[in-house]
Design a protein around this nucleic acid. Structure first.
Lengths: 226, 226
DNA sequence: CGCGCCATTGACTCTGGTCAACGCTAGTGG
DNA sequence: CCACTAGCGTTGACCAGAGTCAATGGCGCG
């Protein structure tokens, strides 16, 4: 039936702020949508007609400089909300890394609903604050950490985030390309590749297709938090 | 009399969300406080007992790595709000760059007030979203821009922010040290110094005590947005 | 006057970027 | 079924932008 009631990410998404009654209200406002890998959800500066609740998949959020340099500002996973700012234009671009399922809402519809639900606004604010906190961590990473530390911190944060959405395994899936990782960490694809090789040689990880096996988690953690 | 009614930053702070009646309410909850230059407002991970509305001065917000590397995640000016996340522990450290005046609120008092004022929460959310947007811009700067571009972007953003709080002049005050600028831009003090010298030699700026004179704004802007 | 702090400048180093070759794998078409 | 190709990832050789280390300068303050 595909309703909010049996939504897999209900407990961890903004919807956890809602009562059963409200859940069915918002259910009637939502448009479940699927995006194939590599397709665009929205682009920077374009009118923000919709907001999104990701229920499945991985989305990259990024900004481009005029000459084509790209900075990925975050990867959004199941449970994450896109369009937190509720502004009339998107501040970043978003496209699906893997096949992705979302609950889409017209922004006007969502903000109208929001005006009647202060506790949902509170939850949205919590989400925005959390995003801000992650962004600040990422600033530390980009401004002050070495390539090794960046890769380690990236792996650790993915481990934690995947754990939160139910995926716990010594093998960490990396659905995004090396280029995506490089553009997230402020490195080049070659440096990412070399650093993986170096960590593999030291026994910290084993590189497998579409992921890495974390064979020495304490070592990675030490590098990440140094 | 020093009340919210005649607050210089009322119009641009979170307080702009409040009616005259509410303004006098919050007035009675506020503790006007002064911090001398170089003193600490709060430190990372310590219990967040208070939130702050800056009415005058400049505050640096930063994170430290265990080995002492520092990343400044932002400079807060008059009108800015500290403690947006309303979490029980501070996520960053804050200290005064210049002598600073704030309206301080006990966090519990503020959140209680907030629970009765959804429009203030909305305003707070707007502030948090704006902060997030600035953080994303800073990620682009730290991840993908050259030293020249970082300095230029830094100067341009300061020009805009000072303009918003009423300071418009070709001479831009730089109350923070070179070390602060370096730690904000992910550079070293030497690179900051060299880049200022280089821009000065090219005629874009003149370095003056505690500031720079922007003698070729278009040139700076071009570098900043490239 | 002299001390100390901050900023500037120079010489040299090094981390990570650039450029280029090569390999692997999946998908295509003969 | 296998040869060919395209795209992604890895590796190597070399390079350059920014970092490091060190000396010097300028200024405020005791």
């Amino acid at each position: 039936m595909n309703s909010c009631t049996d939504c897999r990410v209900r407990g961890i998404s903004v919807c956890s702020a809602l009562e059963p009654q409200e859940l069915s209200e918002i259910d009637s406002l939502s448009h479940p949508t699927t995006y194939a890998a590599k397709t665009t959800l929205f682009s920077q500066d374009e009118p923000a007609n919709a907001v999104f609740n990701i229920t499945e998949g991985v989305v990259r959020l990024y900004k481009l400089l005029p000459d084509g340099r790209r900075q990925i500002v975050g990867f959004a996973l199941a449970g994450d909300f896109l369009g937190l700012a509720l502004l009339d234009h998107y501040g970043v671009s978003a496209d699906a890394v893997t096949d992705t399922k979302v609950c889409r809402f017209a922004r006007s519809t969502f903000t109208t609903f929001l005006d009647r639900k202060p506790h949902l606004l509170r939850r949205l604010h919590e989400f925005a604050s959390h995003e801000l906190s992650l962004a600040q961590d990422q600033m530390v990473l980009l401004g002050r950490r070495t390539a090794d530390e960046r890769i380690a911190a990236f792996l650790m944060s993915l481990v934690e985030r995947f754990a939160r959405i139910g995926h716990t395994s010594i093998t960490l899936p990396l659905p995004m390309s090396r280029q995506d990782i490089a553009d997230f960490l402020g490195l080049t694809i070659e440096t990412v590749s070399r650093t993986f090789s170096k960590l593999a040689k030291s026994g910290a990880i084993v590189v497998v297709p579409d992921g890495v096996r974390l064979t020495n988690l304490p070592q990675i953690k030490a590098l990440a938090t140094k």
